[in-house]
């Protein structure tokens, strides 16, 4: 047997799973639980959390995690990901195509899953470095050197983030303010505010700290946050569909600001 494709041969017709299986006409096993009998009374949010982490969270924790999704659901069709939904509706495409594309685009660099995931990555790494004896100023300098930013701090459009006071209030209500990652995020913010950077903790940073205190890995958080913008998207679709087709912020020709080469002739 050729050792290079031995693994492929072994996997050709056989997959062993720990995650789940549909037994047609009988039952569905979902990460070791019977979906309809053991998980059937969960809310969809709780089921999704279990799907991502394999863990069951307390009611207080679920409320806090739910708040992360609630606070970032903006039904504003100008936002870049939502605008895709509205544009799909104005061209009379289908809702799943509209929202699938918008969710995919939510994995952005300037907002969404890029900052979300990188914020958690920063906090988990920062904690490890601090445990090894590095101080917070050195940590900040090294992060700036590597990424020219600290994910989770600052915001491109405005100086403050309206989601932060909301999440802080939820943290207080949940009595989870003393979590070590939340405290670390606040400590980094104090450094960044007093230093020359003048950056504030933003919602991505605070949400990452909250999930870090709940033991989320980077990949678990990446998966958990996929629907976090979803609730803001259907309103964008509904309204663009109600309005005349093609009428969502139409572009007239002179909206194109051309900066390219002068007119020229194709050389055969």
């Amino acid at each position: 047997m050729n050792s290079h494709y031995e693994l492929l041969e072994a996997c050709e017709n056989s997959l062993e799973t720990k995650m789940g299986k549909w037994f047609a006409g009988d039952k569905v096993i979902f990460r070791g639980k019977n979906l309809h009998q053991e998980l059937g009374d969960k809310t969809w949010f709780e089921l999704f959390l279990f799907s991502v982490t394999g863990r069951v969270y307390s009611e207080t924790q679920v409320r806090l995690l739910n708040a992360i999704w609630v606070c970032t659901s903006y039904p504003d069709p100008r936002l870049w990901n939502n605008r895709i939904t509205a544009l799909a509706a104005t061209t009379r495409s289908t809702p799943p195509l509209a929202i699938a594309a918008s969710l995919a685009a939510s994995e952005a660099t300037i907002y969404g899953h890029g900052p979300n995931v990188r914020s958690l990555h920063f906090l988990l790494n920062a904690k490890r470095q601090l445990t090894k004896g590095q101080n917070i100023q050195m940590l900040i300098k090294s992060e700036f050197k590597q990424h020219r930013a600290i994910y989770g701090f600052g915001r491109p459009l405005h100086g403050s983030d309206e989601r932060v006071p909301y999440l802080m209030q939820k943290l207080q209500q949940s009595k989870a303010l003393d979590g070590s990652y939340v405290q670390l995020a606040l400590e980094v913010e104090r450094e960044l505010k007093t230093g020359r950077w003048r950056l504030q903790l933003n919602a991505a940073g605070l949400a990452a700290a909250i999930v870090a205190d709940m033991g989320f890995s980077v990949r678990e958080y990446h998966l958990f946050m996929i629907p976090s913008f979803l609730a803001g998207m259907p309103p964008c679709f509904i309204e663009a569909e109600e309005k005349p087709e093609g009428s969502f912020f139409p572009f007239r020709v002179d909206r194109i600001n051309y900066k390219g080469p002068e007119k020229r002739t194709w050389k055969s």
Partner: peptide
Amino acid sequence: LDLAQSTLNAVSSEPVEVC
């Protein structure tokens, strides 16, 4: 598709612990 024995064994056990 084969469900791992460990997963099959877990089906009838108590719900997983709350974090």
